[in-house]
Amino acid sequence: MKEFGPLIHSFWYLLRGAGMTVLMATSAIVPATILGMLLALLQVFRGRLVQSAILGYLFLIRGIPLLVLLTFVYYLMPLTGIDLPPFWGVVLVISLYYAAFISEVFRAGILSLPQAQWDAARSLGMTRGLLLQIVVLPQALRLAAPPYVSLCVSLVKATSLVSIVGLWELTMASREVVERTLAPFQIFIGAAAIYFFICYTLALYGRHLERRVVIGH
């Protein structure tokens, strides 16, 4: 047990880092989800022009590693004169990045509903908004739930990249502790355990949510 002394000593410090990780992830998941949903709806309902614009965005984002994008924006920011606190800058980049993937998941969910469901809702006099709200989205979201939760888990882990541009969170905290204690294995086992715990909780919650949506309200 003696070997784990450094981890036990610095565990509180790591937990504070984890708190930052969770804060960053949540701050990004919310806008990424909203933007993702918006992009999915625009893709399904708007004309060719909007569709190709969004498609271009998706291909661009999917073709660039998040780490490259983060670093690029980190260097770009001062040149543009936009004075955004680093935390929010990073949250913005992660949101925009994950919105692209989330929109694809939602779009697939919406398109996988049979045309017949739309016909039935329309024939009952539902306008597009209502039809989306009570017929299409409840079913589409259920279909999209499992891959959506996977993306959220992936987003949590992606926040570990921001230490590269100097933001402090769990990974950065771990590296600091390692520099002080020279105990990389113990510390990173601790960090990995904390990441695992966060992601596992998220996945469990996703499962729970999924079960609830399956049955209806």
């Binding site: 017949a116 469901q117 016909d119 039935a120 809702a121 006099g125 209806g216």
Partner: peptide, 24 residues
């Protein structure tokens, strides 16, 4: 869209494949 929806209120339709809402 809204006018069409209103017009459809007056017309009931039943489909070959039922098309019930499975989540209700």
């Amino acid at each position: 869209e809204r006018e069409i929806a209103r017009a459809r209120e007056r017309i009931g339709m039943v489909f070959q494949s039922f098309n019930l809402f499975p989540h209700m």
